[in-house]
Design a protein around this nucleic acid. Structure first.
Length: 205
DNA sequence: TTCCAGATCTTA
DNA sequence: AAGATCTGGAAC
């Protein structure tokens, strides 16, 4: 079986509404150096009108959105121990800026390294959550501000041609937030064993 | 299978 | 003071 030509998602892809980007990223391939995986779960966060987005409370997040181009990684430490990977989206026309949180991958390359970093063997335990994913790939504070559209070593890829079997994407509410809990801004592949939380199982506080 | 506490630290 | 999480152990 011959390898299908892949195209890296560029700044133009991320120059759109974060909800659109989040949904379309499901099924794409994410490369991080020697490791890679299929994106199976994402969440969208909107700069304006979304209480769960960092821009709502954090001046530094607002400055980041204003000062960085679309396709830049926004990485931050959560709960004092886990690094979470986001991609900046900027839609100049509609002013719908925001982030896509990378929540889960199906590991495809560099699996031995991921197993080592995670101290786990099972594939479904390597990248099935935003903290796990960063741990498996070795993402950390030094990656905050890195461009995901400038080098083929770090970024997202899709087959060039379309019309192939489409990914079955479900909409669900977001995980782990206390504000704006009703928004269905989590996107996940149906029946995928690599997601963090199954469809309809997010617990609300 | 579900629930819970603890780890740990940046931002505001 | 709260938080876009994860883990192991207790409870059922």
């Amino acid at each position: 079986m011959r390898q299908r030509p892949m195209q890296q998602l560029d700044e133009g892809f991320f120059s759109r509404d974060p909800l659109v980007c989040a949904r379309e990223l499901v099924g794409a391939s994410f490369r991080w150096g020697a490791c890679a995986g299929r994106v199976v779960e994402t969440e969208a966060y909107a700069e304006h009108g979304d209480e769960a987005c960092h821009t709502y409370h954090r001046p530094t997040a607002r400055e980041f959105v204003a000062g960085e181009p679309a396709g830049t990684a926004y990485v931050y430490l959560n709960y004092g121990m886990y690094w979470l990977m986001n991609v900046l989206c900027k839609c100049p026309k509609s002013d719908k800026n925001g982030f896509v949180l990378l929540r889960a991958l199906e590991p495809t390359e560099g699996i031995a390294k991921m197993q080592e970093r995670r101290s786990r063997e099972k594939l479904t335990e390597l990248c099935s959550g935003p903290g796990k994913l960063s741990m498996a790939l070795g993402i950390g504070r030094e990656d905050h501000g890195r461009s995901l559209v400038a080098s083929a070593q770090h970024g997202f890829f899709r087959p060039l041609e379309t019309g192939l079997p489409a990914i079955d994407v479900l909409d669900d509410i977001r995980v782990g937030i206390s504000a704006a809990q009703e928004l269905p801004w989590r996107f996940l592949e149906r029946d995928c064993p690599h997601v963090s939380v199954k469809y309809g199982k997010v617990k609300k506080s």
